[in-house]
Computed example of a mutant assay.
Amino acid sequence: MPDKSPLPARLGAAALSRRRCTLWLSAAVLVLAGCTSGSKKPQPAPLEPVVPLVPVRAVWQLPVGAVDALLVPAVQGTTLAVANAAGSVMVIDGDSGQVRWRADAGAAFAAGVGFDGERVALVTRDNELVALTARGVAWRQRLPARVYTAPLVAGRRVFVLAADRSLSAFDADNGARLWNQASRGTEPLVLQQPGTLTAVGHTLVAGIGGRLVGVDPDSGRLRWEAVIGRTRGATEIERLVDIVGRVGRDGDVVCARAFQAALGCVDAAAGRLLWTQAADGATGVQASAEHVYAVESNGRVLALARADGRRVWAQERLLHRTLSAPLAIGRTLAIGDAQGHVHLLARADGTLVNRLTTDGSPIVDGPLRVGNTLVAVTRNGGVYAWRPE
């Protein structure tokens, strides 16, 4: 079956505002033909010495093989699931670093990881949805459209958000297709980076264009939708808007980013938009009862009041370092960069309180909390674990 997905746009957030791109029309879709830089790329802010006000010790380290940017690791409790680009999966105990089980899909991976503690779900470069357990490949299912977002494994189902902005559900035991919800969107371009797919209670929450939608996981019926970011600009590239990366969650409140457009929070139980505001960024967010933490395209780190989006503090010592999504862990905020560092900031005021190093390659998606352990996975395939002392 031919791939009818919208054309993926690979440009990063800061790049879109600096580049002029040529578009041409082919088969009723806009095709990104080429881009030229409009200005010199800013240099990363130099790393200043950091006094380790929050002591952290390394506890374990593992090699897993090179990891693509779309292979986002997944956490269930104290267990971490990691996949490499070659098609192997490793499930790791977060406390000890011991490998609980490994499996090989026999094909290179394109997107993942979905994980419920028992099974792992990924999408191969041949566009097959694959479920693996400790016994190996459980089933495969051919997909009609490309996928850039990790599948969600929950409630003995596997949910898939495709690049054509459709949603599908599969039986986690045998791979049978349970339902499919076609997208109502008409956007011809889609970002080739992880989107949003999560569960809040008995509601499937997905990012469709600039909207968060709540879906009945049993039937695929739409329960609610809330607009986080709206399209704008004169060209298809300028109007490109997608919900990207991790969402921040506190109870039923879900906070999300619309690519280069806005940040906002939604009451997922009621399907009610709490607030939204313009924001320039390309990575996911983190939320607590008091704050929403986010990174702007230029590397400015922000803490916003969760109640209304009011700015609480800003940290500008990490500008232009291509920062990852933030992670709140204990009294700190952990953020990775493209040079393999994990920066720890005080959640109270954004002060830099420690810096951790890996192998020098970018941190995939951002640091993770696995039980009481802080974990980072690098593009070169290193898994690094630390614990506050």
Results as ranks from 00 to 15, higher is better:
L11P: 00
P388A: 14
D68G: 15
Q193M: 15
A182I: 01
A376K: 03
A163W: 00
R135P: 00
V64Y: 11
N298A: 14
W24E: 15
G207M: 04
G209K: 07
L212N: 04
P367D: 09
A169V: 09
D308Q: 10
A154M: 06
A169Q: 08
L25H: 15
F109D: 01
A86C: 03
I329Y: 05
A13C: 14
C255H: 02
A163S: 14
A163K: 02
P388I: 11
I92N: 08
A107E: 14
R100I: 13
W139F: 14
V120A: 08
V244D: 08
P2M: 06
A325E: 15
T196L: 15
A83C: 15
P42M: 04
G175H: 02
P49Y: 11
G38C: 09
R140Y: 06
R232F: 09
D280L: 10
A282H: 01
V247A: 12
A169F: 05
W24V: 14
L374V: 09
A107Q: 13
A69K: 08
I335C: 07
I92T: 14
P151Q: 06
R311Q: 13
R140Q: 12
A182R: 12
P52H: 07
G38F: 07
R119I: 12
V190S: 12
G12F: 03
S324R: 04
L356V: 12
G117E: 05
V215E: 01
Y293L: 13
A262G: 03
G117P: 05
D365S: 13
I335G: 08
S88F: 01
A261K: 14
L71S: 09
R355L: 15
A81W: 05
L222Y: 01
L318H: 13
G382R: 11
A172W: 02
P52E: 12
H291I: 04
A15R: 05
V295Q: 04
G112W: 00
A107W: 00
P2D: 12
A28V: 02
R10Q: 09
E389T: 14
V64N: 11
D337S: 11
A287E: 05
V301Q: 12
S219N: 06
L122N: 10
A270W: 05
A269C: 01
H320G: 00
Q286T: 13
D337F: 05
V158H: 05
L47Y: 00
F159A: 08
D359G: 07
R19W: 00
R177Y: 01
L240H: 12
V31W: 04
G284A: 06
V342D: 09
I335F: 02
D365N: 11
L212H: 06
R125F: 00
N354G: 09
R156S: 15
A131H: 02
G229F: 07
D95Q: 13
H343D: 12
